[in-house]
Amino acid sequence: MGRSEAAARPEAAVSDAGPAAGLYLPSPATIQEVRLETGAADVRTFKVTLDGQEIGKDFIYRPGQCAMVSVFGVGEVMLSLSSSPTWTTHLEFSVKNAGKVTSTMHGLAPGARLGVRGPLGNWFPYESLQGKDLLFVGGGIGLAPLRSLINYVIDNRDRYGKVEIIYGARSPQDLCFKSEIFETWPKAPDTEVFVTVDRGDADWKGKEGFVPAYLEELAPSPVGKVAVICGPPIMIKFVLQGLEKLGYSDEQVITTLEMRMKCGVGKCGRCNIGHKYVCVDGPVFNLAQLRALKGEFV
């Protein structure tokens, strides 16, 4: 007791791009490209550049970090960066059409202006993961934050061990990042991608079934491995059980959380899990950390 959490978290102090003048003032950004991810038309990926800022120089981020994205006149939402920091030409946000801001975003075309505040929050421990095997388990749009790390790892392939990716969605239509899951990633060295859908359609020749069941079937060994998971709560719940059965320790399981956020900087209060704020102390937690927290999550 009595110990300031901010001080206890050294990385926060070195946050490279802490918002400068106005804590709540976004940097101007421009949409360069909009890509429809899912046939169901509810997920789009936005390629965004920051006006007058160079990515990797003026805007430095790490896999798993987030940013508050503004649609001016409508509002602001916390989005995870789905691009890899190794890409310096643009940022990517993969957005599900859910609320007022995201639905407006979905109506925007290249050239439209946005605001970006960030990067915010912590990141996947990409440095301490070096040399380890990685198991990614994603569901639906939950692949977006994992994608940042997956591409980072593939771009630094020699520093990491074997990569296995289990990814599932409700239907073939709902699969995101199709060119990556079917082409780019499987072609990367020592990388395997396992895709499943809850229910296939006439053209679907791949696996059918839920992600946790596929995980159980594939039974990836926990030895020397870290699992990084993200997806809908119900998937997470059963994946966690599955990993436990396979012998993964709580420290070997990393997840990234989603909560309603407004300020993104630990003031407005709503994204707490116990005494941690997802926006500044998260979104990335390992299972051991989460279990230590009081909250509605584990």
Binding site: Y24, G73, V74, G75, E76, K262, C263, C268, G269, R270
Partner: peptide, 24 residues
Amino acid sequence: CHCFDICEKARGPEAERYRCWDTC
């Protein structure tokens, strides 16, 4: 108690982002 919400209001081309008290 200091929790707040951040909201947007737009009136034609003019818009404002403001915060207001919120409660858990």
